[in-house]
Amino acid sequence: MIIAFEPSDTILSVCSASRFWWKPFLAPRFWPTWLLFGFLWLVTRAPFCWQMAIGSSLGRLAYHGASGRRHIAEVNIGLCFPELPGHQKSELVKAHFRALGRGVVETALCWWGRDSQLRQRMILTGQHHLRRALEAGKGVILLSAHFTTLELGGRLLALDTPFHVLYRKHKNPLFETVMQRARQRRFETAIPHEDTRALLNSLKQGMPVWYAPDQNHGGPQSIFVPFFGIQASTLTTTARLAKISGAPVVPFFQTYLSDLERYLLVLCPALDHFPGRDLETDTLRINRLLENVVREMPEQYLWVHRRFKTRPQGDPYPY
């Protein structure tokens, strides 16, 4: 098999804005990250069926090797799906790790995949909902959640619609540099998650902003509302941002359809009468919406995150 090397697709070109950006990352402590990047770049040049098979295999290895994360996933799935028999819970955990492994490859495709190849993998529906919401001139909050397909879903949507994206910095500086440069190439603007002013400025410019508020951050911007029937510390930021900016909230979700080897991207109608008068009711509404989507593709939700680590006073720590 002959691999065509295109300059625009190489690892180094992801950070081409600075010619010698890589020099600070030649120390031996970064070598494993370089090896990982090299491996993943090569995987993105393989046939798609191989990519998914390699990703699933990585997930199987992680299932056996990452016992701590497996325990978190088992606890989360046990709490959220108490009605499932034990063997079905176990199968769901295994399926989730396979999806996690594919997510690693999908992230590499987000960074280094060719547009022409990715377009063949995309089924996009509901664009008219986003266009209609943008007509108000207030921007749009693209409400999403942490699914294993999150990174690639954003890249695929960017092939059709320009938007800005919030991100959280990575602890590994080499990983952060490559990821940030890739996002700057693929999205119009990448905004640090704590930079509320930049987010509001993007909305004022009439831009959609991609936002996923479903992780447990605790702190004064969170309240306890049910998620799968369990009191979960949940960010109230979606309703707050919508109220301050006047931007409509358009839910956006993506899922991998294994039988079709395609990614279904769904833009939903903007939330009616949102935000309301009650912040708690608005936040619960978001959680119920996300819960319904998770139930449709439970293996692709990020169960290895400690979603219930912050507890109401007196509740035991579940992990």
Rank of each mutant, 00 (worst) to 15 (best):
T236N: 02
T33M: 02
A46F: 15
T310C: 07
S90W: 00
S8W: 10
L152S: 03
K171H: 13
R306A: 06
P248L: 04
P275M: 05
W111S: 00
T125D: 10
I2T: 14
E6S: 15
S202C: 04
P24E: 06
R181N: 10
H129A: 01
A99L: 05
Q184I: 15
S258H: 05
R186S: 13
T10D: 13
G65I: 09
G219R: 01
L257K: 02
F175K: 14
T283R: 05
R277E: 14
D272V: 08
I54C: 04
R69F: 01
R181V: 11
Q254K: 10
V293T: 11
H71I: 07
G276N: 08
V104F: 09
L174R: 01
C15K: 03
T177F: 03
V225Q: 00
F5S: 12
W22A: 07
T125G: 11
A247Q: 01
K204I: 09
H146K: 08
R262S: 02
Q180V: 15
F48C: 04
G126K: 13
D214L: 02
Y263M: 02
P85A: 06
Y211P: 03
T237H: 01
G68P: 07
P28L: 06
R240V: 10
L174C: 02
C49I: 15
P208S: 06
E261M: 11
I230N: 12
Q184F: 03
N216I: 01
F224C: 03
L200T: 05
T189K: 14
L200G: 08
L264V: 08
S258D: 07
M179W: 08
S56C: 07
Q88S: 08
I11F: 14
G38V: 13
N76Q: 01
T107C: 15
C80M: 05
V14D: 02
L35P: 05
T255N: 08
M179V: 09
L58K: 07
T196R: 09
L42H: 01
L118N: 07
G139Y: 00
L142T: 03
L265K: 07
